[in-house]
């Protein structure tokens, strides 16, 4: 995945979260309507964000990173 590719995925999910329940699923008074859709949305967001964070190479940025200028002004 391109490093910022996940942002497009998240954006698409968010757009769908606003559009789909108010169009395709409007008026479906069943659990497999908007409830299931938003539940799937939540699980996909959870999976996507977890995957991105899991792939962070945290050991490449030790805690003392960039402390050289500590206390100064940017």
């Amino acid at each position: 995945m391109k490093r910022t590719g996940w942002l497009w995925g998240l954006g698409a999910l968010l757009l769908a979260a606003y559009v789909v329940p108010y169009t395709l699923l409007a008026g479906i008074g069943r659990w497999h309507g908007a409830f299931l859709f938003w539940l799937a949305f939540g699980i996909l967001v959870w999976g996507l964000l977890s995957l991105v964070v899991w792939r962070w190479n945290v050991s490449a940025v030790p805690p003392d990173s960039g402390e050289a200028g500590r206390g100064g002004q940017p």
């Binding site: 999910l13 968010l14 409830f35 938003w38 967001v45 964000l49 990173s65 500590r70 002004q73």
Partner: peptide, 30 residues
């Protein structure tokens, strides 16, 4: 709608992936 409302907040946590490391890095530096 309450579920959608709360899960949109949940999706907003994506912002922490973008801004979290940046806050942390400049916070440590300055």
């Amino acid at each position: 709608g309450a579920l959608g409302f709360e899960l949109v907040y949940f999706a907003g946590l994506g912002l922490v992936l973008i801004f979290g490391p940046r806050f942390w890095l400049v916070g440590r530096r300055f």
